[in-house]
Design a protein around this nucleic acid. Structure first.
Ligand code: MN
Ligand code: MN
Ligand code: ZN
Ligand code: ZN
Lengths: 137, 137
DNA sequence: TTCGTTTTTTGTAACGATTACAAATGTAGA
DNA sequence: TCTACATTTGTAATCGTTACAAAAAACGAA
């Protein structure tokens, strides 16, 4: 089964009608793991979806987030970024070059008894600092 | 030494001139550990600082954050919240009542070798879910 | 104190990501 | 085809935040 078909199946399994804008947006997120913004996605897809509206990108990402297909990453001050990689991992933002990196994270090693009175549904470990490239100077 | 004097000393130690708006804003944050927003701080201090401008609150919080007196908490979608509690702890946001709670967190227990190639300066563990109050229903 | 310089505060305008909304378009089933 | 519903679109509005320059306050030398 090819990628496009798998994307459609995945969407239908989550009660999302696989319209053209939706499948393209999801495919873009699967193929671009650099946590793109709404505007990045919008600009990238304009050439293939001429009538695409930015509102559709917003609507679609809200739908995907709600259905659990993607995660919204709130590590920037201003705009949200989106991630189709659902495996447990943290995000590191370089304060110099502003790039956002994934890093591996084992939630099981964390002592989270401070959370015992809560029902935790969603974990976001955001770290800021200096990436390897920006350390050389 | 009384609280006001300790606040002034703390600010001067960090190269912040202890003006009236600054000392009041810092005092407010020390006495209100519920992660207030800019608007909350602004409205609360209006009665004692008649000419206070919201821009001053923004400027002051940016200065405090830069100097390391407070931390900006980006757990909300829209607005930042501010925290004068600098001890290592995580933040939990209840998706039902929208309250933000602190929880204890031992960074040493976390396996962070995924971060080994980065110089990490700032950790934010933000968790979303349902708080104890909102679980009863 | 007085004068000139620097810092701080203030009000207003601008910015920009996001959302609200209703019209237009597309889709599926009878 | 017809009709009800879902999706997409463009525009306007929202709202937290920032830019900017003027006003006010604090400072330091003479
Ligand atoms: Mn990621
Ligand atoms: Mn806190
Ligand atoms: Zn970097
Ligand atoms: Zn709650």
């Amino acid at each position: 089964m090819d990628l496009d078909q798998r994307i459609k199946d995945k969407m239908m399994k989550n009660n999302i009608r696989p319209s053209m804008p939706r499948t393209r947006i999801y495919k873009y997120l699967l193929e671009h793991r650099n946590h793109p913004t709404v505007d990045t996605i919008y600009k990238a897809l304009q050439s293939e979806l001429f009538s695409l509206s930015k509102t559709t990108v917003y609507n679609t990402l809200a739908l995907f987030t709600d259905k659990g297909l993607v995660r919204a990453i709130g590590i920037e001050d201003k705009e949200l970024r989106y991630d189709a990689d659902l495996h447990t991992h943290g995000h590191f933002k370089c304060v110099k070059c502003h790039a956002i990196f994934d890093f591996e994270l084992d939630l099981d090693t964390i002592n989270l008894q401070g959370l015992s009175q809560f029902i935790a549904e969603d974990y976001h470990l955001n770290v800021k600092g200096v990436c390897r490239n920006c350390q050389e100077v």
